[in-house]
Design a protein around this nucleic acid. Structure first.
Lengths: 145, 145
DNA sequence: GTATCTGCAAAACTTTTGCAGCTCG
DNA sequence: CGAGCTGCAAAAGTTTTGCAGATAC
């Protein structure tokens, strides 16, 4: 097991969370699937497939903690279970293009236009977070049918 | 009961759906709460409180049908049950500002900037639907605490 | 040593489905 | 009349919780 503590681990330690093998494992799985938007169940399966022992409830509990710390974002996309992604360390907001047909999520990392931000900020005095923006529509594959 | 058939009812009839009292009721509740983003359960309770008889399963089934017809949009916001809104007849895409703290949804009806649309369209050859775009952040009330 | 964490199983919730009977057109 | 719709209750699927034992610090 690695000795070094990465960003997320440091943040956990700072807030008096314990660095357990289970939590390390979950972070590791998330790190090795940066663009996959995994469900809790998938994280659980991947971890077990790699020989780590942990329970599904622990995955849910850990994801909840990580979300509160701002290390993980929870995405509710269409039906079925929620999906989770590691929030990049030096993140700029990014877009999620969600296909209403196939449910796949495409990432666009482009900064958000100035005038767009103004509209939002002025209209309700609303502060955009560093989370993603979700745009719904139809992907190329689904449209060409 | 009204004799006239409104937009939604006409659309249902066109597609060989039957106009039943239950479906009328559900549409009526949605119409009288245009900006409220109701859950299936809430629709069910409101309808019953007004003296209409119907089952929760019917509400779910009807909402599913209405969604397929494009008359209703299903919103997954944070935890808990999904929420539904009537899609305006002559709609332009609108924004939903979702507060990550209190979960409230604020509407912004402003057209989507040109350059924004271009970024999306070009990047993945993705076609934005007439559904809303969801932006996450913190509302005024929650920030002033 | 002890407050925190974990696994398991049960509970809680939301949504879907099977089926017998009812109703719209 | 007949295809489609409804209500009920049961099932399915996802997430949370209680608790006894284990563990990080």
């Amino acid at each position: 097991m690695k000795g070094e503590l990465l960003h997320a681990e440091r943040k956990l330690a700072e807030r008096e969370f314990r660095i357990t093998p289970q939590r390390r494992t979950i972070l590791k799985v998330l790190r090795s699937h940066q663009n996959r938007h995994l469900t809790a169940e998938q994280i659980y399966r991947i971890a077990r497939a790699q020989g780590f022992k942990l329970g599904l409830a622990t995955v849910y509990r850990t994801l909840m903690d990580l979300e509160r710390l701002g290390l993980v974002a929870r995405l509710e996309i269409g039906k079925g279970p929620a999906r989770y992604e590691l929030t990049p360390t030096h993140t700029q907001p990014h877009y999620h293009l969600v296909c209403l047909r196939c449910g796949r999520i495409f990432e666009v990392t482009a900064s958000i236009p100035e005038d767009f931000q103004k509209i939002i900020a002025q209209n309700q005095n609303f502060a955009i977070s560093d989370r993603s923006i979700e745009v719904f529509g139809y992907c190329e594959a689904c449209r060409s049918k």
